[in-house]
Amino acid sequence: MILCIVEHDNGRLEDQSAEALTMARGMAGAAGVPLHAVIFGPGGDAVAAAIGEYGVSVLHLADSDALASYAPVAWARGVIAVVEAAPAEAVVASGTDRGNEVMATVGALAGLPMVANCIDVQPGDPYRLSRLRWAGSVVEDAELDSDGPRLFSVAPGSVVPAKADSAVTVETQPVPLSLSDADLAVRVLEHMVPEHDGASLVDSRVVVGGGRGVGSAEGFAVLDELAGLLGGAVGVSRAVTSLGWRPHRDQIGQTGVRIAPDLYIACGISGAIQHMVGCKSARRILAINSDADAPIMSKADYAVAGDLHVVLPALVDELRRITA
């Protein structure tokens, strides 16, 4: 069988788990084996019907009270218990923080390789796969030999979730699991809502981005003004956070946030690949840069060659005039 680790939020299937289930079902079909899933924490049984639609025939449920809060080693022990009882040729998780963490822990405990952020996996001997490196700027094609189950995580957004042609009735089985204190030593003790409103940048339909070319913390005033007029948020490049002009939570890119607005207006940003991976899901990108040859000028949909401190004030004036 092929086993998929499924994450849920109080009984609601997580989007990335739907992606992982879709890839895992494709693998199970190609290998001619059944698809199983494992779910942790109370409320997991509420997901049974939803995962039946993705072709899961057996749900391994680890819903003891000890698993009420997320504990990566305990989850990994649960995965190992399942594959010891019902041998799996592969285990698939979503490439979320938790999915990668649990899968890496399974690999570490079992002494098996783990391949992160796959976009395609073809069962066989050996398995063939493609996975993302450099935050998605490079694809690696590889072969995997393994003495035990092959461990994969699925790059978020790389698979379009699709239900099976016909839903399967899911048989639920408890996971035989006895946990030690050490298995629960790392577990979530508390949830907190951060003071700042981190959602606005990620959810905004318009993002005004500023880079080193803005010149100073004060220089952002005109970007704040434009964002205000358009009902959007301001994001920045790493050059800006490193200089201390703006907090890191505003950073867009490989080591910042990923945005997907209708329009991203990148001002004074050169277009390094590590920045662009954070905004590539924008529907349209508009670049304003004084260097007509800057890389971003050929990666954007629209480009304006010019000093942002000249172009933006003129744009803001015009917007004020027409919206007055």
């Binding site: 098996l112 390789p113 391949v115 050996p126 490196r133 998605g136 700027s137 490079v138 694809v139 690696e140 094609d141 590889a142 072969e143 995997l144 030999d145 393994s146 003495d147 590539k280 990108i285 508009l286 000028m297 050929s298 990666k299 954007a300 949909d301 629209y302 480009a303 304006v304 060659a305 010019g306 000093d307 000249v310 172009v311 003129a314 744009l315 015009e318």
Partner: peptide, 28 residues
């Protein structure tokens, strides 16, 4: 380790074609 790289490749470009809107304030 079991994993053998066959090759690296660049993902397909996302196919944006750039339209130059203009230079400086003339672009407004």
């Amino acid at each position: 380790e079991g994993l053998t790289t066959l090759q690296l490749r660049l993902p397909a470009e996302d196919g944006r074609e750039t339209e130059l809107l203009g230079t400086g304030v003339d672009a407004v």
